[in-house]
């Protein structure tokens, strides 16, 4: 990200028309229209509209409680698992309604994987963590090869090749999180959702995850929720800024405020609320 002098966060800038996205045209993976998510009677997120392109990193930023994680969990139907959660509006994945009657959430999750905030390896060996997804998916090939390929792909092989049979919980936090990413790609999904993947890690471990994300973005579509604006600026092509708003009847709900190319959103936001947030005046 480059910031022209005088146009940095907090600086004055002349009004400009919103710039169009300058990325090479990319196939649309997700098409979200009028998406609202309810927890019981409470509307946690209201009217989100965004399109997400293939093989790039899309970041979702915003203050706590703005609904960015809630929206993320709509993409692989993890919200189904929360009692009382309900989704309204359109989430289309390659033109197929993700919430259609015939759609099997298990099939969805095999194509759209997820990495969580806190590393959550299974209390099994490193090998079995990687092999878990392929096994439950009915993988018939050579598991040993798959495990090696996957760990190599996730840049973890050299660190763990001599202790594949030891518990994954013996790894450091950063390694555990990379193992969770590896475990996700072992299923060969198309999309990887990451819900604040570095929030419990130190800066060095965070840098390794970011490298891995950029490397994986050549083949996978990645959507990452992050609290860390520098991270969004470093790794993502597109950024969505969410905030929580209070409507006329005093109800608080999350809204998508601005969605643009990352460089534009950070250097030249078109909404005052975005600018306030990225310049640290709010949140």
């Amino acid at each position: 990200m480059t910031t022209p002098p005088g146009h940095g966060p907090g600086g004055t800038r002349p009004p400009q028309p919103a710039r169009s996205v300058t990325l090479p045209p990319s196939e649309t993976v997700f098409e979200v229209g009028g998406l609202s998510v309810f927890y019981g009677d409470h509307e946690a997120v209201r009217d989100v509209n965004m399109n997400i392109g293939a093989r790039q990193i899309t970041a979702m930023i915003g203050p706590s409680g703005c609904g960015k994680s809630t929206v993320l969990r709509c993409f692989n139907r993890m919200n189904d698992l929360l009692p009382g959660a309900r989704v309204a509006g359109k989430v289309r994945y390659h033109n197929e309604d993700l919430y259609g009657r015939e759609v099997d959430p298990i099939e969805v999750r095999r194509r759209i994987g997820m990495v969580f905030q806190k590393p959550n390896p299974f209390p099994k060996s490193i090998y079995d963590n990687i092999a878990y997804g392929p096994r439950v998916g009915g993988f018939k090939g050579n598991l040993d090869d798959l495990v090696e390929e996957t760990l190599t792909h996730a840049a973890l092989w050299d660190e763990v090749k001599d202790k594949l049979r030891t518990s994954a919980l013996a790894l450091s936090g950063g390694q555990q999180q990379r193992l969770c990413i590896a475990r996700t790609i072992a299923v060969e999904p198309e999309v990887i959702l990451m819900d604040e993947p570095c929030s419990s890690l130190d800066p060095i471990a965070t840098a390794k995850i970011e490298d891995l994300m950029e490397h994986l973005a050549q083949e996978f579509t990645i959507i990452v929720v992050t609290h860390n604006m520098q991270q969004a600026a470093r790794v993502s092509e597109q950024t969505a800024f969410f905030s929580s708003e209070i409507d006329g009847s005093g109800v608080r709900h999350g809204r998508l405020i601005e969605f643009d190319e990352t460089g534009t959103l950070f250097s030249n936001p078109s909404d005052q609320r975005t600018e306030d947030y990225i310049s640290g005046r709010f949140g």
């Binding site: 993890m78 298990i106 994987g113 969580f116 959550n120 390896p121 475990r183």
Partner: peptide, 18 residues
């Protein structure tokens, strides 16, 4: 058993039985 383990397993495409 922590919820996070179940979430991890569901996110890998497991059925409830698995």
């Amino acid at each position: 058993v922590p919820r996070s383990l179940r979430d991890g397993a569901y996110a890998l495409g497991s059925s409830r039985m698995q």
